[in-house]
Amino acid sequence: MAATDRTESVFNVFDRNMKRKQKNWASLQDNVQDCDYLKEEVGARIADRVFDVARQFSFALDLGSGRGYVSHNLTKETVEKFVQADVSEVAMKKSVASEIPAVKVVTDEEFLPFKDNTFDLVVSNLSLHWVNDLPRTFHEICRVLKEDGVFIGAMFGGETLYELRCSLQLAELEREGGFSPHVSPFTAVNDLGNLLGRAGFNMLTVDTDEIQIHYPGMFELMKDLQGMGESNCAWNRRSLLHRDSMIAAAAIYQEMYGEEDGSVPATFQIYYMIGWKPHESQAKPAKRGSASVSFGDLRKVNEIVSKSKKDES
């Protein structure tokens, strides 16, 4: 498990033990499925990307699986067997039923207890934003993948919940003369490609998407975030929110972002990433200087095509 003592380290932003408790608590609630809508949607989109790969995977890892939001959207014709790995033992016990046989392993995403070259496929659905050492985690994923194996994942991006962050900050500045972080920091999309490349992946694809969900008000949004197990677990979080500041934040949220029907939007930015572990069979970029046409000649392409047609006739 990741260290849970507060140390001065750039890789110790989150209290991983607190995150395990939050996810366990959320999974024990009777209405846990009512808060699964976001992870279900992104899990289905990850599954679509797996279907786009024209092959059958014999052995796959669902890293930060939670209640199995990816695996139950896949079929045995695509993945023969899954290992579901998560820091929350309760979440995995309440996994959504799937036709794919699965083995459940309680582990931290930062320290994978698997041998090198074990899996054909690794997927990860909205869990890596709570990892302290993301470069190490990407290295671990690459290590446990077989050559020509693929990693397909999704994580929250930097614009996630900007409405909530702005409202809370403005309210605390007004009522308390300063503000504290209430939403965890997120990785920038520009960093993902570099981190994946440094971890050993090639043929990288990184794209972004936004999902906007409407809620009756700010308090309903925060209740659902808690039900998702997505409450802040940063070490520098405030353990107590003043009532006056919360009421002011809800009013600011409504005033700045409210819709005509009285609802308020919450934006979730999603980064999707695909990376392949290198193999000699994969296509390789041409050597530098091997091009037979200069970029400067592109403006003459119509002239070249017309001349070629005349020569043929």
Rank of each mutant, 00 (worst) to 15 (best):
F11M: 10
N202R: 13
N132C: 06
L170H: 15
V96P: 03
Q84R: 10
P135S: 00
P285W: 07
S231D: 05
L225I: 01
V183A: 07
F119V: 04
S65V: 07
I46A: 04
E174G: 15
V50P: 15
P285R: 11
A283R: 06
D209F: 06
L126Y: 03
Y162S: 14
G157V: 01
F201T: 05
I252F: 04
E109K: 01
V305P: 08
E40F: 01
N302M: 10
L145V: 00
Q84D: 12
A97W: 09
I46W: 00
I270P: 09
D62T: 10
K146E: 03
D116C: 09
T205W: 13
L128G: 02
V264D: 10
A60E: 03
L170Q: 12
K81S: 13
K300R: 15
A2D: 12
D62I: 06
G178P: 08
Q29K: 13
I100C: 09
E230L: 11
L164F: 11
T187E: 00
L192T: 14
T118H: 05
Y272C: 13
R299M: 13
I100L: 13
A251I: 07
S239M: 08
E41S: 14
A44D: 13
E303H: 14
K94F: 11
D116L: 01
E40Y: 00
V301E: 01
Y272K: 04
S27P: 13
N302E: 08
N194K: 12
G229R: 02
M203L: 09
R299T: 12
D62V: 04
D15N: 09
K76M: 14
M218C: 06
V264W: 05
F59A: 14
F295T: 13
I270Y: 05
Q226R: 14
R16T: 13
G43L: 08
E41W: 12
L61N: 02
D297W: 03
Y215I: 10
S263L: 07
D207T: 12
Y69I: 02
I252C: 12
P216H: 12
D133F: 04
Q212E: 06
D148W: 11
T4F: 03
V206I: 01
Q29T: 08
D34N: 09
D120A: 05
L204Y: 03
E220M: 07
R237M: 00
L126A: 05
L192P: 06
D5F: 05
S231H: 00
I274T: 05
E80D: 10
T187H: 03
L241K: 06
L112G: 02
F111W: 12
T7S: 04
V144D: 00
I46M: 01
S124Q: 02
M203C: 10
L121P: 06
S95M: 06
E89Y: 03
H129P: 10
D191Y: 08
E210D: 14
S167V: 00
M246S: 13
R175V: 11
A26W: 06
I304C: 12
S263V: 02
P101I: 01
V10M: 09
A283D: 12
R288V: 07
E280N: 11
V83M: 09
A266I: 09
L145D: 07
D34P: 03
K146Y: 05
I252D: 14
A44V: 08
R143F: 01
Y253D: 07
Y215N: 09
V10K: 15
V206R: 04
